[in-house]
Amino acid sequence: MKLELVSLLRCPQSGQRLQLEPGATLISQNGEVENGWLVTEDGSHRYPIRDAIPRFVPESNYANNFGMQWNHFAKTQLDSYSGHPISFERFWNATGWQPTALNGQWVLDVGCGSGRFAEIALDAGANVVALDYSSAADACYANLKHYSGLHVIQGDIYALPFAPESFTFIYSLGVLQHTPDVAKAFEALPPKLAPGGSVCADFYWNRLITLLNPKYLLRPITKRVDQEKLFAWLVAKVPSLLRMSQIIGSIPLVGRFLKRAVPVVDYTGVYPLSPKQLEEWALLDTFDMLAPAYDNPQSAPTIMRWFRNAGLTNVEVFHWGHLVGRANKPLSS
């Protein structure tokens, strides 16, 4: 943890400022705090810093599958690893932000996973606070710790450990639908946004074609299966399921619709990935499809209402891969 982050942190239980308890160990080469404790001003609450990451949540929680997933596929969706600007294009098209606007600004990535979007914001020169509820925070730190602007936190979206209005930009991509209460999760974001700042979040779209996805027939079973066993089963089955999807998908006119019945994520013809990468992405996102404890698609009117009820302006809701909402916080109320 870099010392400059402390000024932004607040106790998620009391709202008090946090300070570094004496006796913390430093990583000498860059001055980061490797291990130690953050303590409130009155000493009533303490939070560990472990492996350079402040920890504000229990080690075991409903997002355990995501921690397993992103530590196993730590680099898969990083553009710097895949060699394709897949995360780059999704990030800038969803947010609508300009790279120059992020330079030197404090940016909050809620649900960072292994850091696929944090990498894009860091490349734009932002100071990125990458937060994840799961141990995916460790994968993000391992992947991106060479960036001077990276700050990783393991924390809870329902109890964000930051001072109000700390961030000029906030985004949460591919995350909120996997929380227990999506509306409450979104409501946590605007209070941390600075006046004049911008927020962007995307969601699975609650429409008929989404609800016909076979995952909604399988998830009542698969989400209850031991995650290690489910993953092992998918390792064995995804290659054949992917080939089946590719064969069906090649049928003229109707193939791209029929292949939806195959319970595998198939990016053939969508992204310019190699056969090996297609299989790796299929395994990653099929596990992501079947394992989460929560999967709650939303409608466009619902998202519009959430953004407007939060007092945000210039609200836009549109489809770009997912159902995207973005807006600004007024300079004054």
Rank of each mutant, 00 (worst) to 15 (best):
A101Q: 15
T168K: 15
E119W: 04
A126H: 11
S198T: 14
F162R: 00
G155S: 02
L122T: 10
A121Q: 12
P190T: 03
L144C: 09
A130D: 14
Q154T: 11
D202N: 15
E119R: 12
A118N: 03
A118R: 09
S135R: 13
L108N: 02
W92D: 02
F167N: 07
I120H: 06
G111T: 04
R90W: 09
Y158F: 15
Y158V: 04
P85D: 08
Q154G: 10
L189E: 00
N103W: 05
S134P: 13
E165N: 12
A124Y: 11
L150Y: 03
I170G: 11
S82H: 03
P191Q: 05
S166F: 10
F167P: 00
P161R: 02
A188R: 01
G115D: 00
V128W: 01
V129S: 06
G111H: 13
W97Q: 07
I86E: 10
Q98F: 06
A142F: 11
A142M: 05
E119S: 03
T95C: 12
E119K: 06
E187R: 14
G125R: 09
A142L: 09
I170L: 15
H84G: 00
V175T: 14
S114K: 01
C140S: 06
A136L: 08
L173K: 11
S114R: 10
V107N: 04
F186C: 05
A94G: 06
V182T: 15
L176C: 12
G111M: 08
N127W: 05
L189V: 00
P85A: 00
G149Q: 02
S172T: 12
G115T: 04
V182M: 11
I86C: 08
R116D: 01
L122S: 13
W97S: 10
R90T: 03
L122E: 11
